Amino acid sequence: MKASATPITRRLATAGFVVLLLSGCQSLETDALVASKAPPEISGAAAGAVAGDMVSRLAEQIGPGKATIALKPDASPYGQALEAALKGWGYAVVTDQKTDGGKSVIPLAYMVMPFEGQVLARLSTSTVELGRAYTVTASGATPASALSLLKRG
């Protein structure tokens, strides 16, 4: 008898593949930010849950509050939630690309996109990219895949 993948296994594999593909679509230069985007239809609760999880994972990679984050937010609930989550982890956040020069500045770009009833979220810096799929509910969001991590040398 030949074993086949279950529908959930195929969905997770597909989501992981899409996240990996998206991680190669953009790269950041150290002095330039790419436009970030997130769909406006993601609720504030879901945006907060996704942003909180992604920033906690970012802090594991770059250290909490050790730098100023340069961010080009959009007007979406996710953009606002991401900025709040970064500040909650102790990062200084600049959105106009001007800094006082006291700390190192890390350009950060993000992307959130709907995919097969879930949302795929990605954070990108010049040294690390994080991606993960989330199941969105009325009260928030929960991770639906393992964290995808790409480190650049």
Rank of each mutant, 00 (worst) to 15 (best):
M1V: 12
K2G: 10
K2I: 09
I8H: 12
R10I: 14
T14K: 12
A15D: 15
A15V: 00
G16I: 00
G16M: 07
G16W: 02
G16C: 05
V18L: 15
V19T: 11
V19K: 02
V19S: 10
L21R: 10
S23I: 00
C25R: 15
S27Q: 14
L28C: 01
E29W: 10
D31F: 11
L33C: 11
V34C: 06
V34D: 08
S36C: 09
P39W: 06
P40Y: 04
P40A: 12
E41V: 06
E41S: 14
I42A: 11
G44C: 01
A46W: 11
A47E: 06
A47H: 05
G48P: 07
G48M: 08
G48Y: 07
A49L: 10
A51F: 08
G52D: 11
V55A: 09
V55R: 02
S56D: 15
R57I: 00
R57Q: 12
A59T: 02
Q61E: 12
Q61N: 04
G63Y: 04
G63H: 08
G63C: 06
P64Y: 00
G65H: 05
K66S: 13
T68D: 11
T68N: 03
L71K: 08
L71W: 03
A75G: 14
P77L: 09
Y78T: 00
G79L: 09
G79N: 11
E83R: 15
E83G: 13
E83Q: 15
A84E: 05
A85P: 02
A85L: 04
A85V: 06
G88H: 07
G88W: 05
Y91I: 01
A92R: 15
V93A: 02
V94C: 07
T95F: 05
D96A: 01
Q97G: 02
T99H: 12
D100I: 03
G102T: 13
G102A: 13
G102S: 13
K103M: 03
S104Q: 15
V105G: 01
V105Q: 01
I106S: 01
P107E: 08
P107Q: 04
Y110H: 14
M111E: 14
V112A: 10
V112Y: 08
P114C: 05
P114R: 11
F115H: 15
E116H: 10
Q118W: 03
Q118K: 14
Q118N: 07
V119L: 05
V119Y: 06
L120S: 07
L120I: 03
R122G: 02
R122T: 03
R122D: 00
R122P: 00
L123W: 03
L123V: 02
L123D: 01
S124Y: 01
T125G: 06
T127R: 14
T127Y: 08
V128R: 08
V128L: 07
E129C: 03
E129G: 02
E129T: 14
E129W: 01
L130F: 04
G131Q: 05
A133W: 09
A133V: 05
T135K: 15
V136S: 05
A138K: 14
A138E: 06
A138C: 00
A138N: 12
S139H: 08
G140K: 09
G140D: 01
T142R: 01
T142G: 07
P143W: 05
P143A: 11
P143V: 01
S145L: 05
S145W: 02
A146G: 11
L147G: 01
S148A: 05
S148F: 14
S148G: 03
L150P: 00
R152S: 09
R152Q: 03
